[in-house]
């Protein structure tokens, strides 16, 4: 009987989890499906997941004066070529890469030494500083967006990469996570490094960092996902120059057209934007979970 009860509760758990994951996956399903279908299929909600892939006419190509027979394309090809043609998506992807990579790099450069000091050095006011770090975790970015925008505007940094990067370089979450991890590193290891002749900076980069790779990786994913997907901040500080658009801003290129044909390319763009993240997560999945468990965030 006990075995039966256990397996029943196991079933229930799985049903709830499956239901939850369906809710999460559904929008992705729609996104990928739309990116494969023709406008007609999207409008009439027909064609299953991938659509019939009947060749369709590219209106824009016809407008340019080509004969319609030469403008026939499969919806899939049409949507994805449009995604890259209508907006310089490649350029946006490179922007996204530069911005997220720089943000993470500088965040780590600042958070690791800070976390080391907060976890392992004894100095006056350390507990107060750490409580301020905890306090800053509670401030939503949107409340300070305006002051930051004004400051950036005052020093004429809006519409630059700097505007996209600088406000995020000090991550209290990163400091907090790394500090929690460093607390678990034994003091003896640091003392041994000191006896071996390392100075504090060598200890940080040659001893603490290598032991903290899983935690850093967990933070990397949190940081990269947040900034790769961020629509709000780039929208605020990039007002004119489209060559500075990050991928989420690229989606704006498709808005406002009454023409239904826009859904396919738009969803194709969205698919292209999220694919790198999903691929990165799958690659790092194991270590990510390790890192989260270790920092006690579970």
């Amino acid at each position: 009987m006990i075995g039966h009860a256990t397996s029943f509760s196991e079933y229930m758990k799985h049903i709830v989890l499956i239901f939850g994951s369906l809710i999460v996956i559904l929008p992705f399903y729609v996104m990928v499906s739309y990116s494969l279908k023709s406008p007609h299929e999207i409008a009439t909600n027909s064609g299953g997941f991938i659509g019939a892939q009947q060749p369709m006419v590219d209106e824009y190509c016809v407008k340019l004066g080509n004969p319609p027979e030469e403008c026939m394309q499969k919806p899939l090809v049409y949507n994805y070529t449009q995604a890259f043609k209508k907006a310089p998506l490649l350029r946006y992807l490179v922007n996204g890469l530069v911005v997220t990579a720089s943000i993470f790099f500088i965040q780590a450069l600042i958070a690791v030494p800070c976390a080391y000091a907060l976890a392992k050095l004894r100095f006056w006011g350390r507990d107060f500083v750490f409580s301020m770090v905890m306090f800053c975790l509670l401030i939503p970015v949107h409340t300070i967006a305006l002051p930051i925008y004004i400051m950036l505007a005052k020093v004429s940094l809006t519409n630059t990469y700097a505007a996209l990067i600088i406000p995020w370089t000090i991550s209290v979450l990163g400091i907090f996570l790394m500090r929690q991890f460093f607390m678990t590193v034994p003091d003896d290891l640091i003392d041994a490094a000191r006896m071996d002749g390392m100075n504090e900076f060598s200890i940080i980069w040659r001893v603490m960092l290598p032991t903290a790779i899983p935690a850093l990786l967990a933070f990397a994913i949190i940081s990269v996902v947040a900034h790769w997907n961020d629509y709000f901040w780039p929208r605020v500080v990039i007002t004119g120059d489209r060559s500075l658009y990050t991928p989420p801003l690229g989606l704006r290129e498709f808005k406002g057209d009454a023409d239904g044909s826009i859904w396919g390319p738009m969803m194709a763009t969205a698919t292209v934007i999220v694919t790198p993240l999903i691929a990165a997560f799958l690659l790092a999945q194991k270590r990510f979970v390790e890192g989260i468990t270790m920092t006690g965030m579970k």
Partner: peptide
């Protein structure tokens, strides 16, 4: 004089080897 400049070596109970 700092620990690193005293030219002494220490063996710890936990060994404190660099794990990586």
């Amino acid at each position: 004089i700092r620990a690193s400049k005293r030219d002494l070596a220490m063996v710890f109970q936990s060994y404190a080897l660099y794990p990586h």
